Simulated assay, not measured.
Amino acid sequence: MARERVTLGAPAVQLPNKASDEIIGSLRHEIVSGNLPVGSRLPSERDLAQHFGVSQPTVREAVRALAAMGLIEVRHGSGAYVRGDATFLVATALQVLMQMESVTILDALQVRGVLGLQSAELAATAATEEDLVALEEAWDRLEVVDTITDYDQLIHAIAGFQEALSRAGHNALVSAIELVLVRLLLQMQFKAMRPRGLKFWRKRAHSYQPDRRELLDAVRAKDPERARAAMIAYLEHQRQTFVEDPALAELRLSDPRALRAAADLSFTNVGRAARK
């Protein structure tokens, strides 16, 4: 199916000295305003150069910058397409920030906890029947955690419950940030500490099932206070597990092991999961 040709509006800004910066600003405006919708293909470098009155290398520089921001995806031989993946943008920014500030896994857990409390209360008031079904299915998958055969499947299963709960609150900003932190925390634990073995992590994952069940039941009962209390208990269980595990509690995102684990995190897949 042929994609609809998009037409750029007039440049949002004048183009003085650093033209590539201004092109970035104009195209970013086109994307966030919806004039360049998600999935649409940008005009060719030649057309963009003519539109902005600059050289093609200048356009190429701007396109590379927009790709690095996660706003567009360059497909070799096909062109540049609007990515529109908010989760990717959040994930990239958070990862860089946590690395620069040498954030510990406990620091990240604390922020995730604040968002988790918000999600639990929101879910208890806003969850639809479809949301509840998704939560039940996510819980059921973790009941048979011993059948999981690799780390990525285990991360997907655990994150699946927490993401289903967050989505049930129907606050896109809270979900976007919480989703990234959840995946990153799991990735840091399981892959940075891979020598402990999959069996160890499966057992630990299953130990939280009673906490998850209480959360699910509180949301189904549409009881925000109960949901908040259940999330507090769940988070405290996690925090205590981390505190009693010095090697894990001291792990920082700037640690080479954590960096390697974080590099494996597929933000594209995370973003897609969040929109299901």
Rank of each mutant, 00 (worst) to 15 (best):
E143G: 15
L115E: 12
L97P: 00
V180I: 07
A227P: 00
P16A: 14
E45H: 14
L135N: 08
L15M: 12
A126P: 01
W139N: 05
L48M: 14
G34C: 07
L94K: 03
M100K: 13
S33R: 15
Q153G: 13
D264P: 02
E30T: 07
G53H: 11
R167T: 09
S175A: 13
S166Y: 08
Q110V: 02
R5H: 01
H206M: 05
E61G: 08
R226A: 15
R183N: 15
K222W: 03
F88K: 09
R272H: 07
G113L: 02
L15G: 01
R275D: 07
V114Q: 10
R75V: 12
E45D: 14
V219Y: 11
K276R: 14
L216D: 11
G79F: 11
H76G: 05
E236D: 14
L154I: 10
L27D: 00
L185M: 12
L235Y: 10
A124W: 04
Q162A: 01
R272P: 00
R112N: 07
D264Y: 02
S44A: 06
I155A: 13
T241Q: 09
M1Q: 11
L94R: 07
L248R: 04
Q50W: 05
A68T: 01
S78E: 13
V32T: 13
S26Y: 05
D150W: 04
Q189G: 04
Q209L: 15
A168W: 03
H206Y: 11
A262D: 03
V38L: 10
D47V: 09
E143C: 12
V63K: 10
L115T: 03
E214I: 06
T268K: 05
A80E: 00
L179F: 12
W139G: 00
A123Q: 04
F52Q: 05
R141A: 12
S254V: 01
V38R: 15
A247R: 04
I177G: 02
P195C: 07
E130G: 04
I232S: 03
M231V: 03
L109Y: 08
A273C: 00
T268V: 02
A263S: 14
E250Q: 13
L251W: 10
L97D: 06
K222I: 02
Y81L: 14
K203N: 09
F200C: 01
L132N: 08
R75N: 04
V90R: 11
F242H: 14
I24C: 05
A67I: 01
A127V: 00
F161P: 04
L154W: 07
R183E: 15
P210L: 09
R204C: 01
S26F: 06
G77A: 06
E45F: 00
L8V: 11
V74W: 05
E22I: 00
R260S: 10
L71W: 10
P246L: 05
R213G: 01
S166A: 15
A273Y: 06
T58M: 06
G25S: 14
A263R: 15
D150R: 04
G113N: 13
Q162M: 07
Y81M: 13
G271A: 07
V74R: 13
G271K: 03
A230D: 11
A218Q: 07
R41P: 01
E73H: 13
T268L: 13
D146T: 02
F200S: 03
L215S: 04
R260D: 14
